[in-house]
Write a protein that binds this DNA or RNA. Sequence first.
DNA 1: GAATTCGCACAGCCAT
DNA 2: ATGGCTGTGCGAA
Length: 896
Amino acid sequence: MEKKKGKMPTLLDFADKRSQPNLGIEEIIAKEVSAKNEKEQMVHNANQSTRTTTESETKLLWYSIIDEAVINNAHLLSYYYDSERNTALLCFYDEDRNTLVYWYDKTDHKPYFIVSEEPTEAEKLIPKDLKGRVVSLERIEKVNPLSMKKEKYTKITVTDPLAVKELRGRFRDSWESTIKYHQNFIYDRRLIPGYKYKVSGKILAPVEIGSTSAKDLRTVFDGESEEVQRFAEELYGLFELPPPIPKMVAIDVEVYSPYANRLPNVATAPYPILSIAIAGTDGRKKVLAISYPHASKSPIKDKFLGEIEVEIFDSEHAMLMEAFRILGDYQVIYSYNGDNFDLPYLRNRARVLGFRPQEVPIREFQDYYTFKRAIHIDLYKVFENKALKTYAFGGNYRENTLDSVAMSIIGVGKVKIEESPGMLGISKLVEYNYRDAEITLALVTWKNFLTWKLLILLSRLTKTGIEELSRSQISNWIRNMLYWEHRKRNFLIPKQEDILKHKKEIKSKAIIKGKKYAGAIVLDPPVGVFFNILVLDFASLYPSIMKVWNLSYETVNPSYECRNLKEIPDVKHVVCMDRKGMTSLMIGTMRDLRVKVYKKKSKDKNLSNEQKEWYNTVQSALKVLLNASYGVFGSDAFALYAPPVAESVTAIGRFTIMSTIKKALALGLRVLYGDTDSMFIWNPEKEALTKLVGEVEKEFSLDLEIDKEFRYVAFSGLKKNYLAVTNSDEVVIKGLLGKKRNQPEFLKSSFSEVIVMLKEIKTPKDFSEIHDKIKDKVKEIYRRLKNMGYTLDELAFNVMLNKDIDGYVKNTPQHVKAALLLKNFDRRLVKGDIISYVKVKNKEGVKPVAMAKLSEVDVDKYLEIARTTFEQILKTINISWEDIEGVARLESFFGK
DNA sequence: GAATTCGCACAGCCAT
DNA sequence: ATGGCTGTGCGAA
C-alpha cells in the first residue's frame, strides 16, 4: 500500500489528547458493552485493512469516567433522558478543566403526572400490565391558577416516561402529562440552563452572584412590589454571570453523489464521504479527505492549501476515525443543517463502513442529532428561527441557506462551484469544503460570539437547554419559561382547553377576514410633504400594557371571586387586579429591565466596550422575548393560548393611542399619522409635548418617547407607506414598493437613485429645485425601459415559495408558474426557495430567468410596475405620472 | 411545527 | 369585458 501524505494517528496521539478527557454520555453503557464485545471488536479490527485499532485504543477513544468528582464551575448546557438508566442526564461545561461533564440524576426524580381522581379510585383505573411501572399514587395540593384555590390532586409517579404516555388517557382528566421528562426534571429541580453550578454528588448548587444588584435596581424598581423586586433581582443574576466560552468547532461534510443536484440518501449512506472540513475557535483549520478519482484534477503540492491543513487518507474508515478523534477536542460542535445531513450521514456511513455503535460519537434523538461528548448546534435552525432572524440578526437575509445568511451576516458566502463536489479536483474541493466550515464558525464568532451569548442568555431566561432552544421556536421558549414559574409557585399547569373553557369567547371582530380578533389602529395619513415632524411612540407598548393592566391568563375574566375588577375598554373583558398576574409580572419586569437598565448600560460610557457589548446582548435577548410575548397568547399553537388576553392587549392599545391623540389635539398638537403605537406630529410645540408626555404617564402609566425627529416626511397617502429624512440625513423608508425585496433589481436601484436626490432636500424651497431633477430621472428610467435597456436579471422578480409546489391548490401564482417550468429542467424546488422570473408576452405571462429571452419580455407590464412604484413617491411631491409618460412620449416621438 | 393583526399590490378565479 | 372576491407575498407595527 502506497503511503499517502498525512499522518496516521498513533496511540500516543490519543493518550496525549485525552489527558483531560470529556466525560462520555455513554460511558457506563459502553463499559458494559465493550467488555462483551471485546472479542468481536478484535475480529472487526483485524478486518480493517487500512489501519488496526487495538481494543484498548477504542476504549480510550470514547469512554472515561469521572463520576464522583466535585466540579466547581459547571455550566448547565443541555440535558437528556437516558433510557438505559431511566434518569435525567445533565450535560455541563466544566470551565476549569475545559471539558464536558455528564451528570446522572442522583436525586431519585421520577416521571409523574397528575389526575383528579382520589388515589384509591385512580388505582383501579390502572391496568394490570402497567401496575408494575407505577411507583406511587400520592395525594397532593396545588394551586389551580384558574380558580386561584388550593386543590387536591393525585400525583401518579411511574418508572419511565413512556408509562405516562400509556396511562394518561385512562383518567377523567390528567395534567402535566405531555411535558417532556427531561424538561420536567429541570422545572422540578429549579435548574437554570445556561447558568453555572457547583456539582458535587447529588447536589447542584447555583453559583451566587455578588449582591451588586441593589444599586442598579433600587431606583428603577423603587415603587414596585416586593414580588416584582425579587423577580427583577433573579433576572439580574442571570445577566450578571459571564457566559462560558468553551472550545468550539464547525464542521462540514462533502459526500460523493452521482446526481448533480441531489444529495445521497442519508439513511443508507451509500456513497463515500469525500472530505470533512473542521474550523475551530482554537485556530484549527483542517480538511480531511480521501483520495478519489477526480482528485488529481487540481493536486495540492504540500500539506497545506494556504492556511488550511490538508490530510489525505487512503481509506474512508481512517478518515472518519481521525475526524472523530479531532472532534473530541471540542465541547461545542456547529454545523449548518447537520441535523438533517452531516450528522446522520457521518453516523450511518460509519456504520456502513463497519464501525461499531460505540465507536461512533454521534447520538440520534427523536428530532435531532448530537454528539456523545459534545453539544451540537445546528446553525441552520438558529438562523431560520423567525424571532431571532427579525429581532437579533437584523432580518436582512431572505433565504436561510448558508450562503445567503453568511453573506448578510459576515459578508462572505460559499465558494461558487459549477460541478458537484465529487467532480472537483482536490484543491477546489478542499477550498469549497473548508469555506463552508469557516463561515459556519464565523456565524458564531461574529461580534465577539454574539450568537452563542444570545443563546446562553435565552437559555437562562427561558429555562430551555441550549440544544432544544436552538432548535425550537419562540412559543416553545416562552412556554418553558412560564412552566418553570408555575412549578416554582406550586401552580398546576393548566391544559389549553382548561384556559379556553374558563376564558369565554372573543369579543372583537378582526378587520381582515380569517383573523381571530381585532388588532391595532392605523390612522389615515395625508398626501404630501411635511417639514419638521416629530414621532412620538410608546416604549414597548404591548408588554407595558400587560404590565400596567395586570394581564395574564389567570387574571382576565376570572372565574374566582375578585374584589377589584377592572373593565377592558371596547371588548368587555374584565381583569382582576387583586393579585399580580404571572405574565404581567414577568413580562412587565423584563420590559422594565430592558428599557430602564440594560439599554442604558449598553451605552454607559463608564463601562468597558466588552461590558457594553454584553449588556447590549442582554437587551437584545429581552427584546426577542418581549416582542413575541403578546403574540403567543393569540396563537393556538401556544400551550397557554388565551385569546381574551391577546384581545385585551390590542384593545387597550387602541384605547390608549386614541385617548392620547385626543389629548394631543386638545393641546393644539397636529397629529398627521399614527400606527399602533406611534404618532407623527407636525411642527410641535415643546411645551405641549412635555405636557402630553406627562399626562400620558400620569393617566396610563405608559412611557411616551420621542422616537424620531424628521426634517420632512413624504406621505403617499397610503397607510404604512412613507419616506422620511431625519435631521441627521438618515433616510427612513417604510412600505414603499421600491424597497420590497421581491421587486426587480432595475426598480430597486433606480428607486434608490431618486432617494439619493430626496436626501438633499433641506427646506421646502429645495423641493421646487429638485422637482425637475427627479422628474428627469424618472423619465430616463421610463425611456430606458421602453428601449429595453435592462438585462434579464435586472428585470427579474424574486419571489419566495412559501409552500412546496404541490401546496398551491387554490390558484397558481406567477412565481409558481415559473417554478413549474423550471421543474421540467430537473431543478429541485422546495419551500423556501426563491424563484426568479420575468414577465413575458406568452399565455402564461411568465418565464424563469434561466429560460427567458430579452426579446419576449412584456414591456408594457414593466411600465405599469414602474408607474405604481414611482407614483408612491411622485404623488408626495405633486408630479403626476402623466407628466412623465406624456413628455417622454413626445420626446421620443420628436427626438428620433 | 406552530407569536399576532393591519395594509398594500397583484394575479387568478368566478359570476355577471 | 368587467368587477368583486380570494389567495399570495411582503412589509409595518
